[in-house]
Design a protein around this nucleic acid. Structure first.
Lengths: 194, 194
DNA sequence: AAAATCTGTTGACAAATGATAACGGAACAG
DNA sequence: CTGTTCCGTTATCATTTGTCAACAGATTTT
């Protein structure tokens, strides 16, 4: 269960975790099952946990005045599900996070994670690298959203995250790209013709 | 010259910098003047410096096949001008960064910054807070770009960064919002009527 | 098994945005 | 001072995308 998390952390650091540190991590991250359609976080709640996805798929989204969902993130294995702002600042979240497939996660609270970072120095390196990685990805997605057409954004998405096409329905992909499901359907059929 | 940088760092940390640390910072960050329209970074170059803006205004942008500029970031006092991916990974940048006003910056290289972080532990706290802050902002901007109309994005932008409206021409604001200058012009005039 | 829901598609029309061109005034450079 | 470039606006028309509605097939629920 925890192996994939250990592997994930090690992939970001220069020194592998020691056995005692691994033990500590195993004792701090608690396994939890989240069934399809069940909420991990609901709008208005403080995001008390950060969840590492061992197996499954989730989505993070807002719901506007008209009841339309806007998906800001799609998440599968080896991603962290958390509204970071709410988690860090203890403010009510504006996002919902729920499971799209039956999902196994490892969860940790803010206080526990702070303890863990104090006890395992190499985790600081992990966090730095992870932050960098997220900053790069966010920059790219932002660039794309202001520079590219919907069609280009879709084809970039499809080649960057081919798995997502298999695991999430098209109306969720459309929402993630900021277009309607009808528009995405048309783009795909036009693309085929070319 | 360096006071605003010191103040900026202290605003993000729990413990103020010691005098010796301030001295070290002053000796490491080098002052530089960048005149209006001069490049700080050009597409294809590795971003060798990170620049703290003491006074002035800059913009970061890409240029597409058709020669159209897409502004991904507008920067003024107390912001860091840098393509982080290029700076960290030493890869050629896809961005241009140039000065819109005559600008005073404090620059630092990657090796120097690594030394500085090793010598002044509290800077690690600064970086963490800064990363968090950037992650929050990036998340919000992404949410906005997929969820909101151009009009709403503009009014959000105008209320979040009122200074920018004064200091950058409208065609740059439009590019930053991912719309054309004509569309922005229309949005503004419609908004007045309401 | 029957009913309900979900998913992807398509058509017709409306709304938003882009492309191009033209214009006047302001700012700037020689 | 004078010509040039830059900036914001407006008009017209084309393109993209959204909205609403309907439909069929698949899946889920009862």
């Amino acid at each position: 269960m925890h192996e994939s998390l250990i592997k994930y952390i090690n992939s970001y650091t220069s020194t592998p975790l020691a056995d005692s540190e691994i033990e500590l991590i195993k004792n701090t991250f608690a396994p939890k099952k989240i069934r399809k359609k069940q909420y991990f976080l609901q709008e208005g709640q403080v995001c008390k946990f950060s969840a590492f996805i061992v197996k499954g798929a989730m989505r993070q989204y807002t719901v506007d005045d008209k009841g339309v969902e806007h998906i800001v993130r799609l998440l599968i294995e080896n991603w962290l599900a958390v509204d970071r702002e709410s988690f860090v600042m203890l403010t009510p979240s504006i996002y919902n996070i729920d499971a799209w497939e039956d999902t196994d996660v490892l969860i940790i609270t803010k206080p526990d994670s702070m303890d863990l970072f104090n006890q395992i120095p190499v985790l600081t390196e992990w966090r730095e690298r992870l932050d960098e990685h997220h900053a790069f990805a966010a920059q790219k997605r932002l660039s794309a959203s202001i520079s590219f057409s919907a069609e280009k954004r879709y084809s970039d998405f499809a080649s960057t995250y081919p798995e997502f096409l298999q695991r999430f329905p098209q109306h969720m992909i459309a929402s993630y790209l900021g277009i309607t499901k009808e528009t995405l359907s048309r783009l795909r059929h036009q693309a085929v013709k070319k």
